[in-house]
Design a protein around this nucleic acid. Sequence first.
DNA 1: CTGAAAGCGCTAACAG
DNA 2: CTGTTAGCGCTTTCAG
Lengths: 340, 340
Amino acid sequence: MSTPSHKITSAEVALRAGVSRSAVSRVFTPGASASKETAKKVRTAAEELGYRPNVLARAMVSGKSRIIGLVVAYLNNQFYPEILEKLSNALRERGYHVLVFMTSRTEGNIDAVVDGILGYQVDGIIAASVAMSSDLSARCEAAGVPVVLFNRTQDGDALSDVTTDNYGGGKMVAEFLLAAGHRKIGYIAGWEGASTQRDREAGFVEALEAARASLHAREIGNFVMEEAKAATLRMFSNDPPDAIFVANDHMAIAVMDTLRHKLMLCVPKDVSVVSYDDVSAASWPAYDLTTVRQPANQMVRETIDLLLGKIDNPNSPKRRIEIKGRLIVRGSAKVPEGWC
Amino acid sequence: MSTPSHKITSAEVALRAGVSRSAVSRVFTPGASASKETAKKVRTAAEELGYRPNVLARAMVSGKSRIIGLVVAYLNNQFYPEILEKLSNALRERGYHVLVFMTSRTEGNIDAVVDGILGYQVDGIIAASVAMSSDLSARCEAAGVPVVLFNRTQDGDALSDVTTDNYGGGKMVAEFLLAAGHRKIGYIAGWEGASTQRDREAGFVEALEAARASLHAREIGNFVMEEAKAATLRMFSNDPPDAIFVANDHMAIAVMDTLRHKLMLCVPKDVSVVSYDDVSAASWPAYDLTTVRQPANQMVRETIDLLLGKIDNPNSPKRRIEIKGRLIVRGSAKVPEGWC
DNA sequence: CTGAAAGCGCTAACAG
DNA sequence: CTGTTAGCGCTTTCAG
């Protein structure tokens, strides 16, 4: 392979292979018709020259960039790097690449961010745990760019989304805690703008009430470790609970640290802790969290199917996919008698 | 703003504003000359139509895509999500976006991955903790795409890189452990293909030898938690050490879990543990790791400066930047008398 | 300061 | 199966 000091075009390959530019194009276009012989000549020439088709030029004429924009808020919560990795791998297998757009979780600048994405002619957008103004989703719609919300729903909106059954998950946790005999149960909430937070809490509280119990204490942790610590301290400053449901694992880690190292309590002897997500740290022996698993692989698969489906068939209807979660019982909470 | 069902072109904006396409272009090109009045007409029309310049088309003619390709191996190690986030934010501030390419850590498929990147006409590539064949770096060179290696050096190669002083860091750890009175010191190695692994170990071992001590035990963890656990078990199966240096925090977490929960040892009473990186989990009370901090912000800044510098000025020379690390003393290792 | 014209690298329709 | 032709949306000389 020679190493010229500029980018190689299909014309140069064509010249060297003694064919036309279209021939070159066809050889590099899956499912286009070129004779075995032409293909070989072209591939050889391309190899020798170090030619790669220019994806951008291809995108311009075909209208498909094979780029998916991924909007993500905080990578601190281990759940999201895991998702990003899975998403990226699965997408690559289907011939797409991921352009990452970081934003803060609050609605403020997300519109600007997505606006920026649109300029890259992405074929689709996955918004992980962020909210979009309906104005903005309308623009995406208008631009013909499908959007799917990952791990977040948004009402009154025409966006597809993939979530787990957060309501059912919250309910499961309440039933588990109740069955273990807990009666003074606290809840540490995530950011209240998040549908995950709202649904988990709703399911949790309703199951409590269905059993004639009620929330003993409630504090807000906003999905942020520092705030979760402060919330825990507040919750234990007076008439402490004997069990806590924390809205996600990320905060639960901070909660457990605070319980043990600031309040000198034992988990689960003094207080049971249950949370949500089942990130990999949840299974580390130091925490050993009982938690509701969000089946990441399945969520990713559904998200991609939904998005690519919409790309292939732009007027496929909006869909909301809700996947059942499962309670993973570990050591951070008392286990009810005979629980299986 | 109206919401047409297709993508808006500069021609449409031009038409509505009663100017030429070039005028529109100039209004959206920073530092181009357009009269105040034209600018206003164009902006209004653009706003009403919901126009965004097509970055891809612009890239084709200008030759600059404003996309940086980021190659990253595993997001499991918390260090990388943190870096990705910082990188992405800093780059966006400078008008670039990040296209993420995931690969496995071993050299196998990385060439294919980078090859794919080149097709996107990225303006530059940041390779985080992955090795590139010299053949491939030659191709990037030939294509005029600068590459900088993040947290990894590669000898015999013309690539710029940004690392911390891993050799010096390893040395610091040895001195710290020795000063605390440890004499039976073990090392859990990372993947041996990594320069970080090699340099940390080299500095560590040489400082040990300089003090007429030597490595008491050595096992390989390959930067993978499961393997680090197995390595720990092996190391303690016979004549256990009283201190361990673990090549990074990610493995150290697994090592500590194993020490405490499988081997029933106390840290640091029975064994001191020191590691490398200072990811956020290192400061969680459950681990409270004494570790060498890699100054992420500074590394990111240098990386970006280096890369963008090379983009602006293609024949700026290759540079290797090495940043000093610092030992963050926490509770996972005995602290030498009078250490400050 | 502004418009007309040319062309970035590629693919898609059309003849042959 | 193959080459020719016409653009994708934009920026950029070059005249005016």
